[in-house]
Design a binder for these strands. Structure first.
Lengths: 201, 201
DNA sequence: GAACTTGTGGAGCGATCGTTCCCATACTAC
DNA sequence: GTAGTATGGGAACGATCGCTCCACAAGTTC
């Protein structure tokens, strides 16, 4: 109906997500965002209201892409549960850290930086956490049903252990820890689940 | 030789540590610090050089107090290793969150906020992590030596698993997760170590 | 073409950032 | 008491913060 946009809004959100992901909320200024998204501040504010709202958009975008891919990779689809779990965790800690420093997990970084002080943010981080927990729960149920996992496995406990371990792995990835050590932790937690068939994965 | 200080430097560092711990580096302004430490900016800068240096002092103070207590609590001193480990982790996640929001672990919060971008900071966080890993390693060796843990326990793997789990617990504490669920994760990781004597701890 | 609507560029708002400076103050040394 | 010295209080520096405003550009509708 009038002058069309010269930029792609979705692409801008993607770039904003990457910047917030790497630097965190407080360390990313609106001018940084403008430079990275190639937007003037007027376009940025007209389109995204303000910095905080754009951050929420970035969080939502992350969940819709990165988190969604993670959950997709947790879908067994007939493959051995042990292998799915192992590949998934290895994939988590070897995420592309394209140049600069390791990014870790945007949700984990955000949860620790903004803690429980921002209701809109913590509602999103908690929702993301819950989705992962449910995906893990489903996978373990499938493993127990198929006989890969012991019938008396305490799934609630196993989910808590796996989920907690994953958060730890994400922190260690962000901190730049040696991938080999993270792989050791991954194999250890998988062994802890007590898979019955110990075929190599 | 001249006018004496009206404030206790050590107490000021303690208060600064608490503030940085709760809010992080970027979200804590020098004026916030001045108000909390009851210092004017001139005294603050004369004593602590600048914000970044004070932050390093706070990190060092944290390691010398909180981290030191954590490592002391990891010293078996004749008690069953299983009990030491369990009490230690429960203590970690039920740290006093005196009012306001949960503080988590200052080292973990710092490592995720500043990542690997600040060499002086990451050198300290990595050193703190290494001390914890070594304390865990010693405890596991003791458990294996006393027969509490299986003789063929892979201690390297167990250390990586425990350490990673602990980082995850700290994140979840910061995020305000239910203590009962964290306790479930703790019991699960302890069970994973395969203690031989299963007496109640 | 004219009228209208929306995006763009950029100056600039008030507030706050980390930091410095000045001076009165309060103590020691003699 | 006097001289010397480090501190405490606080104004104020330049830079940057998040954000607003406005004139102009670039389209659509008729």
């Amino acid at each position: 109906m009038a002058r069309p946009r010269q930029f792609d809004e979705q692409n801008a959100v993607t770039r904003a997500t990457d910047l917030f992901w790497r630097r965190g909320y407080n360390a990313t200024s609106v001018r940084d965002l403008g430079a990275e998204l190639k937007l003037t501040s007027s376009s940025l504010y007209r389109t995204f209201t303000d910095k905080h709202t754009l951050f929420l958009r970035a969080l939502d975008h992350y969940r819709a892409t990165e988190s969604a891919e993670a959950e997709q990779r947790l879908d067994a689809a007939g493959r051995p549960v042990r292998q799915v779990l192992r590949d998934w965790m290895l994939w988590l800690v070897s995420c592309p850290s394209d140049g600069e420093s390791a990014r870790g997990c945007f949700v984990v970084n955000t949860a620790t930086e903004l803690g429980t002080t921002d209701a809109q943010v913590s509602q999103r981080t908690e929702a993301a956490f819950e989705v992962t927990r449910q995906a893990l729960r489903s996978l373990l149920h499938e493993g127990r049903h198929s006989g890969e996992l012991p019938i008396d496995l305490d799934i609630d406990a196993a989910v808590e252990l796996l989920f907690t371990t994953v958060l730890g792995l994400r922190v260690r990835e962000r901190a730049g820890h040696d991938l080999a050590r993270l792989a050791t932790a991954i194999d250890a937690v998988i062994q802890a689940l007590g898979f019955t068939s110990t075929q190599p994965s």
